[in-house]
Design a protein around this nucleic acid. Sequence first.
DNA 1: GTGGTCTAGACCACG
DNA 2: GTGGTCTAGACCACA
Lengths: 129, 129, 129, 129
Amino acid sequence: MDASLLTIQPASPEPIYRQIVEQLRRLIASGQLHAGELLPSVRDVAGFHAINPMTVSRAYGLAESEGLLERLRGKGMAVASNGHATHSQSQRLALLDPQLSAVAQHARELELSADAVMRRLHKLMGDSK
Amino acid sequence: MDASLLTIQPASPEPIYRQIVEQLRRLIASGQLHAGELLPSVRDVAGFHAINPMTVSRAYGLAESEGLLERLRGKGMAVASNGHATHSQSQRLALLDPQLSAVAQHARELELSADAVMRRLHKLMGDSK
Amino acid sequence: MDASLLTIQPASPEPIYRQIVEQLRRLIASGQLHAGELLPSVRDVAGFHAINPMTVSRAYGLAESEGLLERLRGKGMAVASNGHATHSQSQRLALLDPQLSAVAQHARELELSADAVMRRLHKLMGDSK
Amino acid sequence: MDASLLTIQPASPEPIYRQIVEQLRRLIASGQLHAGELLPSVRDVAGFHAINPMTVSRAYGLAESEGLLERLRGKGMAVASNGHATHSQSQRLALLDPQLSAVAQHARELELSADAVMRRLHKLMGDSK
DNA sequence: GTGGTCTAGACCACG
DNA sequence: GTGGTCTAGACCACA
């Protein structure tokens, strides 16, 4: 894996270290990071994105305590081989549920139809490809 | 308007005052709160939801400074009568865009198809009705 | 709870933040900290033990992510009310198992009898009261 | 001595080199390794346990600097013949003291009686025989 | 080379 | 008042 795979948005209200953890969670769940794969070093990620190494270290540490990553002493952090990788589609969808529930509630408050919301979402997902 | 119309989730990472402001924004944009309508007092909202009155006051103050609400001396806060209410559908959809963009990005990281995500969203929007 | 209840050994190889978390785990499991009880603030603990507030904050954060503590926004950290508190004696004993297993293995390597080890342990536990 | 006599737990938080040194200390103190006995080569130990040779070398070096081992030029490392071997029982018990003190403190924090802890320890020492 | 810990201090967000 | 985030930099431990 390359440090450039991670996307960091420093201006986001979401803390950087959590952005990293959640991206890792998704990339691992989808198999884009496969079990055993070595992650870029803390210093590489920090240098590439111009953030503090401790911020990256904090993210890696959290991901480890969640069982997403494991520490190979002297080598770095690797994707854990605990079955967290390559979830089924329904498992991956479940990761989106909290966000989608919020969207559903907000749409209701806005009195928007499911069709209108979905057309908009479809457009955004097409654009992003 | 009744204090029970607002939904507060004290355990959410979203700060309470922002939950209130954003809900007001959506309820006003959709016309569920109409211009001139009087809001429940800070004390009522705070008492009903068992939250700190200062939090409600802060939300009302922010909403006022955005032009969503206006302060009627001696009567309380009311929905502003300056055209913020009853947005068009496209304006209301725009309020959902940031969230939908995030959903799109996360879906990409999870390698989920637009169809699968939309089916899930459709189900959630149906359920919530 | 008072900041003086925690014991910090800065010279120990065990990191300070983990000393705190594990002590909290034991004090909660034994009911010496009861569910809902407010912990001393990060700044109080840091000041009392002359350590960096971030170190304490890190410990509290970890304890929260383990479900031991919960954040009361604006009030501080409190012992979680998730049933982690007041474990049965067998549950509390289980928390000592890893250490006791290591003791057992080391005693074997030292060719020490169970009786000799236990007499020593009994003396130490008596002294500490 | 055979490389298989050492027990290595790569996943333990205890560093590997220290696991080796402390095991050597205990095996020598108890006379299971006798003075003058030749140890397996760095390469053998590293190969057998699939760990880095440098780690084994570091452990041997530390043990030598402590006087546990001595370097026989051209032959390898051997158990030192300077009275470190076959300690008395009280000397061997002293090697366990730091661990037992920690157990005593944790038991106090868990409000466990000396009897309960000792029954558990007795069971573990019996099992491991 | 790897990650981990701690400090000192600034600044923010929340109630 | 509370905790949270981030930075900059030093130092350590491990392989």
